[in-house]
Design a protein around this nucleic acid. Structure first.
Lengths: 205, 205
DNA sequence: CAAATAAAATGAACAACGTTCAAAATTCAA
DNA sequence: TTGAATTTTGAACGTTGTTCATTTTATTTG
């Protein structure tokens, strides 16, 4: 029995080794600059070995995208202790933005890059569980807000999607370097300022 | 004298020819699938010729990105007849979203793809005039809203950036296929619904 | 008109990429 | 020890963006 188990563990370990190397490389050099050859070289394996553990590059990017959602979820875990749904909603946005700006390549992989979705669609069971779980986390918080009497006359899903779009838009514009060169008085602080502005709007609901 | 002028005109025409072919190709097949060889073949010129008129692929993408801003601006032109700034703000968002979803590859080039910005940064005068002009158009409308007494206690730039982020976030999530697979009751309508929801929020200001 | 000059277009060649797969190396069970 | 199963290898393929010496075309000059 022990042999098969050890083999399975070793397989898992090499898979993880590949992912760790991939993540390190493209956090340092960016997604586009990271090649399969780079990854193989970093872990002292041949190119072919990488393809034994991952069908293609998209599969690697999808696996890292999943890790990203794991990271985000762990950041969200502190929200469990926030009783008031409105306060939780506000904190959720802050955490989301902070995560996005501190893990730019990961964020891009999770919400912008098409590769992970392309990989998913090529699967027999193309379910985006990570996105589903994250949106549900937001949505259920918004649901509590509605139950508590906030946002009277608003619908759950569109409202939730609106919140998501707002914070995503900020992260996305910042990461894709669209905030520079727009003549802002303080480009580096604009995201925080804009989110603060949004929270001010929320005070009326 | 006539010769130099004609030469200049011909140069301009070939440049346009390249851009039209490039735009057609990647509107049909996507940005990543469009290669320099494809473009050259489409206009019956050699690969080398393309490089006479554009330094590299990024230069082509930047030129198309600029064309995209021209298109957006022409869509915005109807806003001149909207006197009430709040109504103009609402209409601006609708036009922005409609443009984004009906010209997905163009939109991606304008606000997500890094290539145009990479090209710009390699320039001696790295000014993002297109983005600047567009943000100014939004910003001045918001300024009029503030002057008219709306959004009391809010600051211009962060508030404007917030609006931009909201509509951009919607377009971005939709285009990068993140709205599918999140278990929405009506994925294809979520953007419109969410923007309507946002307009409802705005009624309080 | 012919020769010399300038300008424009060419496409073979290069390096690097993702990907494949027959062969080699290694590990396991008998 | 032997033979089968598994794992690893890296050369090779087709594409990509890019370059540049060469050829072709257009213009000017004598």
């Amino acid at each position: 029995m022990g042999v098969a188990e050890r083999k399975a563990r070793e397989k898992e370990e090499l898979r993880d080794l590949i992912l760790r190397a991939a993540r390190k490389l493209f956090t340092e050099n960016g997604i586009e600059q990271t090649t399969i050859r780079n990854i193989a070289e970093a872990i002292d394996y041949s190119v072919g070995t990488v393809y034994v553990y991952f069908r293609n590059k998209d599969a690697i990017l999808h696996a890292l995208h999943s890790q990203g959602f794991g990271m985000l979820a762990s950041h969200f875990s502190v929200l469990a202790s926030v009783a008031d749904p409105m306060e939780r909603l506000r904190a959720m946005g802050r955490i989301y933005i902070k995560f996005g700006l501190e893990n730019r390549d990961m964020y891009e992989l999770m919400f912008s890059t098409k590769a992970p979705m392309t990989f998913l669609c090529a699967t027999d069971q193309p379910e985006w569980d990570e996105g589903k779980a994250t949106f549900t986390a937001l949505s259920s918080t918004v649901a509590e807000c509605l139950e508590a009497g906030h946002f009277a006359g608003h619908s759950l899903q569109p409202l939730s999607f609106m919140f998501w779009s707002l914070v995503h838009g900020m992260c996305s514009l910042e990461i894709s370097q669209r905030t520079q060169g727009v003549n802002l008085t303080d480009p580096s602080a604009i995201v925080d300022q804009a989110y603060t502005e949004f929270l001010k709007l929320l005070d009326h609901f």
